[in-house]
Design a protein around this nucleic acid. Structure first.
Length: 401
RNA sequence: GGCCCUAUCGUCUAACGGUUAGGACGGGACCUUCUCAAGGUUCAAAUCAGAGUUCGAUUCUCUGUAGGGUCACCA
C-alpha cells in the first residue's frame, strides 16, 4: 500500500435481517484492511428503510460482530442523520443536479412526487483495487430516484453523503455492489465529494454457484447458527478470510491478529468462492487444537454429552457384548473384574493389557454406550461417572447370565 | 435480454513467460488402534475452447463458451 495514513473504511449493513455470513466476511476484510494499515473502521447502520429496518436486527448484527471480535472504532445510524441528507438534497436541487419529479404511483405507499438525480449521461470509469479498471455508460441508468422526499433519502444518496462526511477513503464491499458504483460516483461528482478507492470483494457461492441468500439457504447464512453450534470465532474468521484471500505461503491457520499481520489486499481473489462447510469444520478442528488441553477435553465432553446413549442407559444386544475373539463367559469374567477398576484407570488399563485389550475394553465400552462405534471407555467413564458406569456394566453382566 | 464481473484438481487456492502445474479440504489405500474419531504414510484428481504475441504460455491480447452479479420510490 502506498499511503498508510488516514485510512478510513466502513461497513454499512442494513438492519433488515440478522447478521449474515456475507456481511460478516465483508466486515472482516474491512477490519483487516483498517488494522493492517493503521486506519479507522467505521460501522454504520443503514436504516433509512423504516419499513424493513428493525432494532432487533441491528442488535443482532452488533452483538454478532462483537462476538467475532470485529470491533469498530466508530458507530453511526443513518436514521439519526436525516438533517444532513436534507441539506445535501436541497443543495443538489438548487444547483440543478437533482429535481423534484411528479410521478404516477405504481404501488401502494409510493409518492406522487420524488427527488430524481439529473443524470449527465456520461461514461464513468473507476479503478478497482481488486478488478482493475471498470467502465460504465451511465446513460442506461436514467434519472434515478435519490429520495422519496426531502426527509426520506434513499440508499445511493445516503451512502455517498455519509462516506463523504465521514471521510471514507476505501470502500471494500461485495461484488454485487459493482453495478451501484457508477450511480454513486455520479452523486459524488454532483456534491463535490472526493472519490474513494473501491475494492469489490468476490462473493460467496453455494454449492450450485449461486449467491448465498436468506430465502434459499436458511440457517446456514446466519452467524447465530455457527455461534449456537459452538464454532470458535477465530475458526470462522479464518475460514472467511480464506474464501477469497490467501497469504501466499502454505500456512493456513491464523488467529484474527495473525490475519491482520498477514493481510494484503493485493492478494484478494477476483473470483467467487463456494462455501464449503467441510473446510470450516477443518478450520474449527485446527483452532480447537490451539486451545489449552482442559478446554479441548471440555469441548469434546460437551459434544459427547449430546449423544442419546449418554442421556439414557442404552439397550444392549447380548450378542455384541463380547469382543470378536472372546466368548461370552470371558466377557462376563472380564466385566466383573473391571467393575472394581472403574475408578482406577491405570489399573483398568493394566488389567486390559494383561487380558487382551479388546477382550476387556470392548465389552466395557459396549456396556457403557450400547454402540458399535463410540469414544473410548475411559472417556465414557469420565463423562458418565463411576456410579453410572458401574450400573451399566452390572446390567451387561446380568444380561450375560 | 442490456450492462458488468469471473474462469487452475469436486471445493479453497499457489504460480506474477520457463515448475514433473505446488499446498489444503474432501475422497481412495495402507499403518496405528478395543470400535469410532484422531494421528501417520500414500494415491488419484486441474490450467474452459480456439486463434494470436513469443524461442517459450496457466500467466499477455482477441474471439467464443460457460458461470455469476445487477437492472426498485430495498440496501
Amino acid at each position: 500500500m502506498e499511503s498508510t495514513k488516514n485510512i478510513v473504511v466502513r461497513m454499512a449493513p442494513s438492519p433488515t435481517g440478522n447478521l449474515h455470513i456475507g456481511t460478516a466476511r465483508a466486515t472482516l476484510f474491512n477490519y483487516l484492511f483498517a488494522k493492517k494499515y493503521g486506519g479507522k473502521f467505521i460501522l454504520r447502520s443503514e436504516d433509512t428503510d423504516k419499513e424493513r429496518s428493525k432494532k432487533e436486527y441491528e442488535d443482532n448484527i452488533l452483538s454478532g460482530l462483537s462476538w467475532l471480535g470485529l470491533e469498530h472504532d466508530e458507530f453511526f445510524r443513518q436514521s439519526e442523520r436525516t438533517q444532513i441528507y436534507v441539506s445535501y438534497v436541497k443543495q443538489m436541487i438548487e444547483n440543478g443536479s437533482a429535481y423534484v419529479s411528479k410521478e404516477e404511483p405504481k404501488e401502494p405507499g409510493q409518492r406522487d412526487e420524488v427527488i430524481r438525480f439529473r443524470n449527465p449521461n456520461k461514461k464513468i470509469a473507476f479503478d478497482d483495487l481488486i478488478r482493475g479498471t471498470v467502465e460504465f455508460d451511465t446513460t442506461e441508468l436514467g434519472d434515478f430516484v435519490i429520495a422519496r422526499s426531502l426527509e426520506e433519502p434513499l440508499y445511493h444518496l445516503a451512502v455517498v453523503v455519509d462516506d463523504h462526511e465521514m471521510k471514507v477513503t476505501h470502500i471494500l464491499r461485495g461484488e454485487d455492489h459493482i453495478s451501484n458504483t457508477p450511480r454513486q460516483i455520479l452523486i459524488q461528482e454532483a456534491i463535490g465529494a472526493v472519490r474513494p478507492i473501491y475494492a469489490h470483494l468476490p462473493l460467496i457461492f453455494d454449492a450450485e454457484h449461486k449467491k448465498l441468500s436468506k430465502r434459499k439457504h436458511g440457517a446456514m447464512v446466519w452467524i447465530d447458527t455457527y455461534k449456537e453450534e459452538e464454532y470458535l470465532p477465530d475458526a470462522l474468521l479464518n475460514f472467511f478470510a480464506f474464501m477469497g484471500w490467501n497469504p501466499g505461503t502454505e500456512r493456513e491457520i491464523f488467529s484474527l491478529s495473525e490475519l491482520v499481520e498477514a493481510f494484503d489486499i493485493e492478494r484478494v481473489q477476483k473470483n467467487a468462492a463456494v462455501f464449503n462447510i467441510g473446510k470450516l469444520k477443518w478450520f474449527q478442528k485446527e483452532h480447537i487444537k490451539l486451545l489449552p488441553e482442559e478446554e479441548q477435553t471440555a469441548l469434546r465432553a460437551k459434544e459427547i454429552k449430546e449423544e442419546d446413549y449418554i442421556k439414557t442407559a442404552p439397550k444392549l444386544d447380548v450378542e455384541k457384548i463380547a469382543w470378536k475373539t472372546s466368548t461370552k463367559a470371558e466377557a462376563k469374567a472380564n466385566l466383573e473384574r473391571s467393575l472394581d477398576l472403574v475408578a482406577d484407570k491405570d489399573g483398568l488399563m493394566k488389567f486390559a493389557e494383561g487380558a487382551g485389550k479388546g477382550n476387556v475394553l470392548w465389552p466395557i465400552r459396549y456396556a457403557l454406550s450400547g454402540k458399535d462405534k463410540s469414544p473410548d471407555p475411559f472417556t465414557l467413564i469420565d463423562i458418565l461417572g463411576v456410579e453410572e458406569s458401574k450400573k451399566r456394566i452390572e446390567k451387561a453382566i446380568a444380561q450375560l447370565q
